[in-house]
Design a binder for these strands. Structure first.
Length: 317
DNA sequence: ATTCAAGGCGCG
DNA sequence: AAAGCGCGCCTTGAAT
Protein backbone atom coordinates (compact mmCIF):
# COMPACT_ATOMS: atom_id res chain seq x y z
CA UNK A 1 0.00 0.00 0.00
CA UNK A 2 2.57 2.54 1.13
CA UNK A 3 4.95 1.05 -1.41
CA UNK A 4 2.57 2.03 -4.21
CA UNK A 5 2.21 5.57 -2.90
CA UNK A 6 5.98 5.76 -2.50
CA UNK A 7 6.34 5.54 -6.26
CA UNK A 8 4.54 8.88 -6.65
CA UNK A 9 5.04 10.82 -3.39
CA UNK A 10 8.06 11.59 -1.21
CA UNK A 11 6.38 11.21 2.20
CA UNK A 12 5.43 7.51 1.99
CA UNK A 13 8.91 6.85 0.66
CA UNK A 14 10.49 8.48 3.69
CA UNK A 15 8.16 6.53 6.00
CA UNK A 16 9.22 3.25 4.40
CA UNK A 17 12.88 4.21 4.70
CA UNK A 18 12.38 5.00 8.36
CA UNK A 19 10.60 1.71 8.98
CA UNK A 20 13.43 -0.20 7.34
CA UNK A 21 16.17 1.48 9.35
CA UNK A 22 14.11 1.27 12.52
CA UNK A 23 13.63 -2.46 11.97
CA UNK A 24 17.39 -2.97 11.53
CA UNK A 25 18.15 -1.01 14.68
CA UNK A 26 15.57 -2.58 17.01
CA UNK A 27 15.91 -6.17 15.81
CA UNK A 28 19.61 -6.45 15.00
CA UNK A 29 21.90 -3.52 15.81
CA UNK A 30 20.52 -2.96 19.30
CA UNK A 31 19.74 -6.58 20.13
CA UNK A 32 22.55 -8.82 18.85
CA UNK A 33 25.30 -7.20 20.95
CA UNK A 34 23.21 -7.84 24.07
CA UNK A 35 23.12 -11.53 23.23
CA UNK A 36 26.86 -12.11 23.08
CA UNK A 37 27.84 -14.93 25.41
CA UNK A 38 30.58 -13.57 27.71
CA UNK A 39 32.39 -16.93 27.80
CA UNK A 40 32.67 -17.39 24.03
CA UNK A 41 32.39 -13.78 22.88
CA UNK A 42 29.87 -14.97 20.29
CA UNK A 43 26.13 -15.07 19.72
CA UNK A 44 24.64 -18.58 19.93
CA UNK A 45 21.25 -19.38 18.47
CA UNK A 46 18.98 -22.24 19.47
CA UNK A 47 17.77 -24.49 16.68
CA UNK A 48 14.46 -26.27 17.11
CA UNK A 49 13.81 -29.52 15.34
CA UNK A 50 10.14 -30.08 16.06
CA UNK A 51 8.46 -26.76 15.42
CA UNK A 52 7.70 -26.28 11.75
CA UNK A 53 4.96 -27.95 9.75
CA UNK A 54 7.26 -28.89 6.89
CA UNK A 55 10.33 -30.27 8.68
CA UNK A 56 12.52 -27.22 8.53
CA UNK A 57 14.51 -26.14 11.55
CA UNK A 58 13.61 -22.91 13.28
CA UNK A 59 16.04 -20.60 15.05
CA UNK A 60 15.46 -18.43 18.12
CA UNK A 61 17.18 -16.25 20.73
CA UNK A 62 18.45 -14.86 18.48
CA UNK A 63 16.95 -15.97 15.19
CA UNK A 64 19.97 -16.29 12.89
CA UNK A 65 17.84 -17.43 9.96
CA UNK A 66 16.61 -13.93 9.19
CA UNK A 67 19.79 -11.88 9.21
CA UNK A 68 19.41 -9.16 6.54
CA UNK A 69 20.86 -9.72 3.08
CA UNK A 70 18.50 -8.18 0.53
CA UNK A 71 19.81 -4.59 0.62
CA UNK A 72 23.05 -2.76 1.34
CA UNK A 73 22.07 -1.25 4.68
CA UNK A 74 20.93 -4.64 5.93
CA UNK A 75 24.04 -6.38 4.69
CA UNK A 76 26.09 -4.26 7.06
CA UNK A 77 24.54 -6.37 9.83
CA UNK A 78 25.65 -9.53 8.07
CA UNK A 79 29.17 -8.13 7.73
CA UNK A 80 29.43 -8.23 11.52
CA UNK A 81 29.47 -12.05 11.43
CA UNK A 82 33.20 -12.63 11.10
CA UNK A 83 35.57 -15.56 11.31
CA UNK A 84 38.15 -15.95 14.06
CA UNK A 85 41.76 -15.05 13.23
CA UNK A 86 43.25 -17.49 10.74
CA UNK A 87 39.81 -18.65 9.64
CA UNK A 88 37.29 -17.76 6.95
CA UNK A 89 33.54 -17.93 6.63
CA UNK A 90 32.38 -20.42 4.00
CA UNK A 91 28.74 -20.35 2.88
CA UNK A 92 27.39 -23.32 0.89
CA UNK A 93 23.97 -22.83 -0.73
CA UNK A 94 21.79 -25.27 -2.60
CA UNK A 95 20.89 -23.70 -5.94
CA UNK A 96 17.15 -23.68 -6.79
CA UNK A 97 16.60 -26.70 -4.60
CA UNK A 98 12.81 -26.48 -4.42
CA UNK A 99 12.40 -26.15 -8.18
CA UNK A 100 14.71 -29.11 -8.66
CA UNK A 101 12.53 -31.08 -6.27
CA UNK A 102 9.48 -29.98 -8.25
CA UNK A 103 11.15 -31.33 -11.39
CA UNK A 104 11.85 -34.64 -9.65
CA UNK A 105 8.41 -35.01 -8.09
CA UNK A 106 6.49 -33.96 -11.19
CA UNK A 107 8.78 -35.77 -13.64
CA UNK A 108 7.97 -32.97 -16.07
CA UNK A 109 10.09 -33.51 -19.15
CA UNK A 110 10.82 -29.86 -19.85
CA UNK A 111 11.83 -29.11 -16.28
CA UNK A 112 13.99 -32.23 -16.00
CA UNK A 113 15.71 -31.32 -19.27
CA UNK A 114 16.37 -27.73 -18.25
CA UNK A 115 18.09 -28.83 -15.05
CA UNK A 116 19.92 -31.69 -16.79
CA UNK A 117 21.43 -29.17 -19.17
CA UNK A 118 22.36 -26.76 -16.42
CA UNK A 119 20.19 -24.00 -17.80
CA UNK A 120 19.28 -20.80 -15.98
CA UNK A 121 15.84 -22.05 -14.95
CA UNK A 122 14.06 -18.68 -14.90
CA UNK A 123 15.47 -17.86 -18.33
CA UNK A 124 14.39 -21.27 -19.61
CA UNK A 125 10.88 -20.74 -18.24
CA UNK A 126 10.72 -17.29 -19.84
CA UNK A 127 11.83 -18.75 -23.14
CA UNK A 128 9.02 -21.33 -23.03
CA UNK A 129 6.25 -19.08 -21.74
CA UNK A 130 7.02 -16.07 -23.94
CA UNK A 131 8.08 -18.11 -26.94
CA UNK A 132 11.47 -16.51 -27.48
CA UNK A 133 14.93 -18.00 -27.88
CA UNK A 134 16.98 -18.45 -24.73
CA UNK A 135 19.37 -15.66 -25.70
CA UNK A 136 16.52 -13.34 -26.62
CA UNK A 137 14.87 -13.35 -23.17
CA UNK A 138 14.58 -9.81 -21.80
CA UNK A 139 15.22 -8.86 -18.20
CA UNK A 140 11.53 -8.15 -17.78
CA UNK A 141 10.59 -11.57 -19.15
CA UNK A 142 13.04 -13.31 -16.86
CA UNK A 143 11.66 -11.42 -13.86
CA UNK A 144 8.13 -12.50 -14.76
CA UNK A 145 9.20 -16.10 -15.21
CA UNK A 146 10.93 -16.02 -11.84
CA UNK A 147 7.71 -14.80 -10.22
CA UNK A 148 5.82 -17.63 -11.91
CA UNK A 149 8.32 -20.23 -10.72
CA UNK A 150 8.21 -19.01 -7.13
CA UNK A 151 4.45 -18.67 -7.30
CA UNK A 152 4.09 -22.28 -8.37
CA UNK A 153 6.03 -23.49 -5.35
CA UNK A 154 3.64 -21.56 -3.12
CA UNK A 155 0.46 -22.58 -4.93
CA UNK A 156 -0.20 -19.02 -6.04
CA UNK A 157 -3.27 -18.23 -8.15
CA UNK A 158 -3.49 -16.14 -11.30
CA UNK A 159 -4.79 -13.33 -9.12
CA UNK A 160 -1.72 -13.49 -6.91
CA UNK A 161 0.54 -13.47 -9.94
CA UNK A 162 -1.26 -10.43 -11.35
CA UNK A 163 -0.64 -8.55 -8.09
CA UNK A 164 2.99 -9.65 -8.00
CA UNK A 165 3.70 -8.55 -11.57
CA UNK A 166 1.30 -5.61 -11.57
CA UNK A 167 -0.53 -6.90 -14.63
CA UNK A 168 -4.20 -7.63 -15.31
CA UNK A 169 -5.82 -10.81 -14.03
CA UNK A 170 -6.43 -11.87 -17.62
CA UNK A 171 -2.81 -11.39 -18.55
CA UNK A 172 -1.68 -13.37 -15.50
CA UNK A 173 -4.07 -16.19 -16.34
CA UNK A 174 -2.64 -16.27 -19.85
CA UNK A 175 0.89 -16.65 -18.48
CA UNK A 176 -0.13 -19.48 -16.17
CA UNK A 177 -2.08 -21.28 -18.88
CA UNK A 178 0.91 -20.99 -21.15
CA UNK A 179 3.20 -22.27 -18.41
CA UNK A 180 1.07 -25.35 -17.81
CA UNK A 181 0.90 -25.95 -21.55
CA UNK A 182 4.70 -26.00 -21.72
CA UNK A 183 5.15 -27.94 -18.48
CA UNK A 184 2.15 -30.31 -18.40
CA UNK A 185 3.88 -32.56 -15.90
CA UNK A 186 3.80 -29.75 -13.36
CA UNK A 187 0.06 -29.28 -13.87
CA UNK A 188 -0.49 -33.00 -13.42
CA UNK A 189 1.62 -32.93 -10.26
CA UNK A 190 -0.40 -30.05 -8.79
CA UNK A 191 -3.67 -31.82 -9.52
CA UNK A 192 -2.45 -35.13 -8.14
CA UNK A 193 -1.18 -33.47 -5.00
CA UNK A 194 -4.54 -31.80 -4.30
CA UNK A 195 -6.36 -35.05 -4.95
CA UNK A 196 -4.09 -37.20 -2.81
CA UNK A 197 -4.19 -34.68 -0.02
CA UNK A 198 -7.98 -34.89 -0.07
CA UNK A 199 -7.98 -38.69 -0.18
CA UNK A 200 -5.39 -39.33 2.49
CA UNK A 201 -5.64 -36.17 4.57
CA UNK A 202 -1.89 -35.64 4.36
CA UNK A 203 0.98 -35.10 1.96
CA UNK A 204 4.53 -36.30 2.44
CA UNK A 205 8.15 -35.58 1.58
CA UNK A 206 10.55 -37.95 -0.18
CA UNK A 207 11.73 -39.16 3.22
CA UNK A 208 8.14 -39.77 4.27
CA UNK A 209 7.58 -36.83 6.58
CA UNK A 210 3.87 -36.14 6.67
CA UNK A 211 2.00 -32.89 6.83
CA UNK A 212 -1.58 -33.47 7.95
CA UNK A 213 -4.19 -31.20 6.43
CA UNK A 214 -7.37 -31.18 8.49
CA UNK A 215 -8.80 -28.31 6.43
CA UNK A 216 -8.35 -30.02 3.06
CA UNK A 217 -12.06 -30.96 2.96
CA UNK A 218 -13.38 -27.90 4.73
CA UNK A 219 -16.67 -26.52 3.49
CA UNK A 220 -15.09 -23.10 3.96
CA UNK A 221 -13.52 -22.42 0.57
CA UNK A 222 -10.93 -20.03 1.99
CA UNK A 223 -9.65 -22.61 4.47
CA UNK A 224 -9.78 -25.36 1.89
CA UNK A 225 -7.80 -23.31 -0.61
CA UNK A 226 -5.23 -22.46 2.04
CA UNK A 227 -4.87 -26.17 2.86
CA UNK A 228 -4.40 -26.90 -0.85
CA UNK A 229 -1.61 -24.35 -1.09
CA UNK A 230 0.07 -25.85 1.96
CA UNK A 231 -0.33 -29.31 0.39
CA UNK A 232 1.39 -28.18 -2.78
CA UNK A 233 4.23 -26.42 -0.97
CA UNK A 234 5.01 -28.94 1.78
CA UNK A 235 6.49 -31.77 -0.33
CA UNK A 236 8.94 -29.33 -1.91
CA UNK A 237 9.85 -27.27 1.14
CA UNK A 238 9.88 -30.41 3.29
CA UNK A 239 11.99 -32.50 0.93
CA UNK A 240 14.50 -29.65 0.78
CA UNK A 241 14.60 -29.86 4.58
CA UNK A 242 15.12 -33.64 4.39
CA UNK A 243 18.01 -33.11 2.00
CA UNK A 244 19.90 -30.52 4.02
CA UNK A 245 19.38 -32.52 7.22
CA UNK A 246 20.95 -35.56 5.57
CA UNK A 247 23.78 -33.32 4.42
CA UNK A 248 24.32 -31.98 7.93
CA UNK A 249 24.57 -35.52 9.27
CA UNK A 250 27.01 -36.47 6.49
CA UNK A 251 29.18 -33.44 7.22
CA UNK A 252 29.13 -34.18 10.93
CA UNK A 253 30.10 -37.82 10.31
CA UNK A 254 32.97 -36.71 8.10
CA UNK A 255 34.33 -34.24 10.66
CA UNK A 256 33.85 -36.73 13.46
CA UNK A 257 35.64 -39.58 11.69
CA UNK A 258 38.81 -37.63 11.10
CA UNK A 259 38.76 -35.59 14.29
CA UNK A 260 38.70 -32.51 12.11
CA UNK A 261 38.73 -29.37 14.21
CA UNK A 262 39.79 -27.05 11.39
CA UNK A 263 36.21 -27.07 10.05
CA UNK A 264 33.22 -25.95 12.11
CA UNK A 265 29.63 -26.10 10.89
CA UNK A 266 28.18 -23.06 12.63
CA UNK A 267 24.80 -22.20 11.06
CA UNK A 268 21.95 -23.55 8.93
CA UNK A 269 19.61 -21.27 7.02
CA UNK A 270 17.16 -23.64 5.29
CA UNK A 271 19.08 -24.16 2.05
CA UNK A 272 22.47 -22.97 3.25
CA UNK A 273 25.17 -24.27 5.59
CA UNK A 274 27.67 -21.82 7.03
CA UNK A 275 31.12 -22.92 8.14
CA UNK A 276 34.09 -21.39 9.89
CA UNK A 277 37.19 -22.97 8.38
CA UNK A 278 40.91 -22.70 8.95
CA UNK A 279 42.38 -20.72 6.05
CA UNK A 280 44.89 -23.48 5.24
CA UNK A 281 42.24 -26.07 4.41
CA UNK A 282 39.55 -23.95 2.71
CA UNK A 283 39.87 -25.53 -0.73
CA UNK A 284 39.92 -29.18 0.28
CA UNK A 285 37.20 -28.68 2.89
CA UNK A 286 34.98 -26.80 0.44
CA UNK A 287 35.35 -29.59 -2.08
CA UNK A 288 34.32 -32.20 0.46
CA UNK A 289 31.38 -30.10 1.68
CA UNK A 290 30.18 -29.71 -1.90
CA UNK A 291 30.45 -33.45 -2.50
CA UNK A 292 28.54 -34.32 0.66
CA UNK A 293 25.80 -31.75 0.09
CA UNK A 294 25.30 -32.55 -3.59
CA UNK A 295 25.25 -36.27 -2.84
CA UNK A 296 22.88 -36.00 0.10
CA UNK A 297 19.98 -37.44 -1.88
CA UNK A 298 19.72 -38.95 -5.35
CA UNK A 299 17.14 -37.12 -7.47
CA UNK A 300 16.42 -37.29 -11.19
CA UNK A 301 18.05 -33.88 -11.50
CA UNK A 302 21.49 -32.87 -10.26
CA UNK A 303 21.76 -31.04 -6.96
CA UNK A 304 24.01 -28.01 -7.26
CA UNK A 305 25.79 -26.24 -4.39
CA UNK A 306 27.26 -22.77 -4.67
CA UNK A 307 30.12 -22.01 -2.29
CA UNK A 308 31.48 -18.63 -1.27
CA UNK A 309 34.39 -17.67 0.97
CA UNK A 310 35.02 -14.48 2.90
CA UNK A 311 36.20 -12.84 6.05
CA UNK A 312 32.57 -12.21 6.96
CA UNK A 313 29.21 -13.79 6.19
CA UNK A 314 28.28 -11.14 3.64
CA UNK A 315 31.50 -11.60 1.67
CA UNK A 316 30.92 -15.35 1.63
CA UNK A 317 27.93 -14.73 -0.66
C1' DA B 1 4.76 -6.53 35.46
C1' DT B 2 3.27 -9.89 32.22
C1' DT B 3 0.54 -11.74 28.41
C1' DC B 4 -1.81 -11.59 24.11
C1' DA B 5 -3.18 -10.28 19.34
C1' DA B 6 -2.39 -7.65 15.36
C1' DG B 7 0.31 -5.22 12.10
C1' DG B 8 4.43 -5.18 10.07
C1' DC B 9 8.78 -7.07 8.24
C1' DG B 10 13.46 -9.64 8.46
C1' DC B 11 14.85 -14.36 6.08
C1' DG B 12 14.53 -18.94 2.82
C1' DA C 1 -14.61 -12.37 0.51
C1' DA C 2 -10.04 -13.56 -0.25
C1' DA C 3 -6.35 -13.94 -3.14
C1' DG C 4 1.58 -16.83 -1.82
C1' DC C 5 4.41 -21.39 1.50
C1' DG C 6 7.34 -21.68 6.01
C1' DC C 7 9.31 -19.22 10.15
C1' DG C 8 10.55 -15.43 14.68
C1' DC C 9 10.82 -10.69 16.62
C1' DC C 10 9.60 -5.82 17.21
C1' DT C 11 6.13 -2.33 18.53
C1' DT C 12 1.68 -1.06 19.99
C1' DG C 13 -2.47 -1.18 22.66
C1' DA C 14 -5.50 -3.63 25.59
C1' DA C 15 -6.34 -6.97 29.11
C1' DT C 16 -4.99 -9.38 33.22
Amino acid sequence: MLAELALDYPLPKVILEHRGLSKLKSTYTDKLPQMINPLSGRVHTSYHQAVTATGRLSSTDPNLQNIPVRNDEGRRIRQAFIAARGNRIVAADYSQIELRIMAHLSQDKGLLDAFAHGEDIHRATASEVFGVALDKVSGEQRRSAKAINFGLIYGMSAFGLSRQLNISAGEAKKYMDLYFERYPGVLRYMENTRQQAAEKGYVETLDGRRLWLPDIKSSNAMRRKAAERAAINAPMQGTAADIIKRAMIAVDDWLEQQNNDAVKMIMQVHDELVFEINADVIDSASQQIRTLMEGSMQLDVPLLVEIGVGDNWDQAH
